[in-house]
Structures are given as structure tokens and as C-alpha cells.
Design a protein around this nucleic acid. Structure first.
Lengths: 245, 245
DNA sequence: CGAAACTGTATATGGGCTACACTGAATCCC
DNA sequence: GGGATTCAGTGTAGCCCATATACAGTTTCG
């Protein structure tokens, strides 16, 4: 309970407004917000790989090194982008009569945010969710599960499970799109490739699946949103079983 | 049904033994296997970030460029590593009387493999699973779900869901360990940080969770395996509900 | 014996992050 | 007001990375 300095992960202090700066010297010509916005712009337009310090600096009209006055390194910039991508979350309104509808809504919204900032799926995972928007989001999730009788630990784990699945789902959809819109190359047809590689005697189960009609799986035809909903419903069923009702 | 060349993703042709090489010229002093083994060694010892072409080349005693005679680029090397990490999977024996026990066993084994090649969690996701070991693994998964009456598409999606969760679970455990064993810095106590940041009036739910005793969540104390099992059971419950019995 | 094919190397290009030293401007304090 | 302090932005340079290209040396085939 002593008032120790409390080390925060990089960028977190800045996000929570805990990084102070003196009043001497020239006025800053730039701001963290401007930098992060520019970086997100680039990421949305050209993918996360296109986000380099030099590239961002050019976008805001400064030299690369100037960015380091606002952001201590690139990793921190990435964290800030991740948080900023969820700006506007404060306006989120939890909808639904029961926990199931609410959590479903919560999950779909999360996937939506990821989808509209698709570079998120290329982000290296880092610290646990400590950014303000993440915390806010967890708060909403807990609210959705309020009154279910679940323990706190269970609630948190369930939210983690659902969140991580929203991310995975978006990533898989993204990968599928990439494969199709590849470098002008022939479309990567997952099923066709498997049909070529999978011999009946070595892989009886998979061979049957791949040659049966139904296996339109990873293909662009299958609606990723529907697939996500499938998984989500399955998880929700699991939660329901856990709640015991 | 024509016999078109069928473009395979990078590395996949090599993995399935479909890359031929002439017999002229000097005998190779190196092999893909040696390179991949060395790369995995480095990744296990120092993390995936330490795996660079130069680093691997030094490990095998050749110049960096020599590796390109065996591997067409770094990305391909990563795919080969990913596949090689699951070598030995052929000996896997599916255990369990019913599908639930079998799938559970399947999932736990998968997490185990990831855990013992923990750099996998740092890998950029790429193509859908087409490497031999991945395909073999799916085969086992289908076998586990055999006789459940589930449709092929559902089976595949369920396997994807469980797999992705094994990966996420391992990643979260890894991140937690990282946070603790950080750069000699003070341990990042998730709960403590949240207690500092989360105000009761702004985040009533989370505030309560964080200040209640139970919230020993992301902490090293909580056994990651147990947490994985929790999520897994939840998913299994969902599947059971789906099967309708 | 060429000619062809192949291995491994050396060199060089272009990109990345960021430490460091520096200039000049704004502010504070005496 | 004037010096000291603090800070913004720049330029340079170091080090790492992946890999294209050209080449030297070696093996095999016709």
C-alpha cells in the first residue's frame, strides 16, 4: 500500500495522461495525436508494414528523429495506434435484454472495430490490455455479464476468450482476402490445394471432407461474419452451460 | 480438372517433397534440415526476433547468402520452422473413449507442442495450414470428432476454434512470463496497475473486480494450463450443446 | 574435353531503428 | 535585462536487416 512509483508499461503512462512536460523551450509543432493519426492512416492504406518512423515523419512533414520527442520508440507508437483505433468506444451503448444478447452485441462490435482497422491483426501482441480504451471495453464486457452469477475470474476469462476470438476471426478473414488478392498470382484455392496433396490412404478423414461438396470453407465464398457468429454462438452455448441455465 | 501447374504457397512445395534438384555441380554442404534445426535452436534460446539469416548462417558455419540456395527467403524459413516444430506428431495417438475426451486430449497436446516451441506465438500468421504436420494434425482432429454427427464444415470450424485458442492461450501465458521476467525491472503486476488506474466512478464493474480478492487473474500465480482447460471445457460444452446431447 | 549446372562467396543496395551531438528558440529566475 | 535552463527539431552516423547480382570454383553429362 505504499506509494511506490509504480512502473507502467511503455506508452501506458502517456495514454493515461501521466507524462508531464515542462513549460520551457519552444512550443511543440507536433503532437502525439497528429503522429498517431498519421500512422493509422498509413496502416489503413498500405498495411502495418508500411508504418516506419521515416514514413510517418514524412507524412507529418517532419524529420524522422523529431518523432522521438513525442514517442519513446516505435513499439510505443504501435501501442498508441492500437488504443487510438478504438477511440469512439466511449459512445458504445450496450444493447440486449439478456446477457447473451448483450455479450453477442459486444463481441460483434469488437470484431467490427478490428475489421475497420484491419492492420490490427498484423500487430505483434504485447502487454495485457491496459490502454484506456481496452479497459473501457472490459468494463462494458463485465456489464454485459452482470447478473449472470459468474465469478469474477470466470467473467474475465470469458471476455478474454471472446476478444481473442474476435481477433483471430478477423485475422483469418484478412488472410483469406490476401490470398485471393495476392500479387496478381493465381488465387490460392485452399480446397484445390488440399485435393492435390491429401491422399486418401494417408488422410482418410480429411480426404473425404475435401472431396465432399460441403468443404467450401476458407474460401472467399463463406461469409466471415457468419463464421464468426457460428463460433460465437458456440462459445455462448458453452457459457450458458456454465451458468447452468 | 485439368492438370494445371497448381501454384503452391512458398515453402509448401518443398515440404511435400515437390522441389526437385538436378544432379550436376558440387554436393551441397548444407541441407534444409540443418538450417531449420539451427533456426529453431536460436528461436528457442533467444526468441524469434533473434532469428536472422546472418545469425542462422553463423550457427551453421556458412555465409548468409548460402542459405538462399536452400530456402528462397526468410518467410519460407519461418514456415519450415513452424512445420518442423510439430515433427514427431506422426507418433501421436488419439486417446479417449468419446469425442469429448479425444478432442480434449488433442487440444492439450497442441498446446503442449506450442509451449515447448514458444517462439511460435511470435510468428506472423500466414497461410492457412498446409504444411504436412498441420494437415496431419487436422486429420487427427477430424478423427476425434468422428461419429459426432457434426457436418464437415462445422468440424473444420471447431478445430480451427480450438487450435486458435491453444495458440492464444500459450501466447497469453508467454506474455505474462515476459512481464515478470522483464528487463530486471519491477514486476508488472496487472492487478496493481489496474487498481492504480481504474477509478470507481468511471469503471464500477472493473473497479469492483480488481479490488475483490478473487482477481488473481493474469498473475503468475494462476496456472495457465488450468486456465486453458477452463476455456477448453467451455468450448467443449458449446460443442456438446451443438451436437444436442 | 568442353559445356552446363550447381554451390558457396563477396559485394552492394536499400531499408529499418535509434544514439548522439548539435542549433536555436522559449522560458524562468535573479 | 541577462544569463541559465529547458526544450524542439535536425543531421549524422552506427548498426542491423533481407536480398539482388555477379562471380569463382566444382561436379557431372554428352
Amino acid at each position: 500500500m505504499t506509494d511506490e512509483p509504480l512502473v507502467l508499461p511503455p506508452g501506458i503512462d502517456l495514454l493515461w495522461g501521466r507524462r508531464t512536460s515542462g513549460s520551457r523551450g519552444p512550443k511543440p509543432g507536433l503532437s502525439v495525436g497528429v503522429i498517431v493519426t498519421a500512422a493509422i492512416s498509413i496502416a489503413n492504406a498500405e498495411g502495418l508494414a508500411a508504418v516506419s518512423m521515416a514514413r510517418v515523419a514524412k507524412a507529418v512533414g517532419f524529420t524522422p528523429m523529431s518523432l522521438y520527442r513525442y514517442v519513446s520508440n516505435k513499439d510505443e507508437l504501435l501501442q498508441l495506434m492500437w488504443n487510438a483505433s478504438a477511440d469512439g468506444i466511449a459512445d458504445f451503448e450496450l444493447e440486449g435484454a439478456d446477457w447473451r444478447a448483450r455479450l453477442s452485441h459486444w463481441a460483434m462490435k469488437q470484431r467490427e472495430v478490428i475489421e475497420s482497422n484491419i492492420w490490427i491483426v498484423q500487430m505483434p501482441m504485447a502487454t495485457p490490455p491496459l490502454a484506456p480504451n481496452s479497459v473501457r471495453w472490459i468494463e462494458y464486457g463485465l456489464e454485459a455479464l452482470d447478473g449472470t452469477g459468474l465469478g469474477d475470474g470466470d467473467k474475465m476469462r470469458i471476455l478474454g476468450l471472446v476478444s481473442s476470438h474476435a481477433l483471430i476471426s478477423a485475422r483469418m478473414a484478412f488472410d483469406a482476402r490476401q490470398a485471393v488478392a495476392g500479387t496478381g498470382k493465381q488465387q490460392l484455392d485452399y480446397t484445390a490445394v488440399l485435393r492435390e496433396l491429401v491422399e486418401a490412404e494417408d488422410y482418410p478423414q480429411l480426404h473425404r471432407v475435401v472431396w465432399s461438396g460441403e468443404a467450401d470453407d476458407e474460401e472467399p465464398g463463406g461469409d466471415p461474419i457468419e463464421e464468426f457468429r457460428f463460433d460465437l454462438e458456440l462459445i455462448l452455448d458453452g457459457i450458458e452451460a456454465r451458468i447452468g441455465h
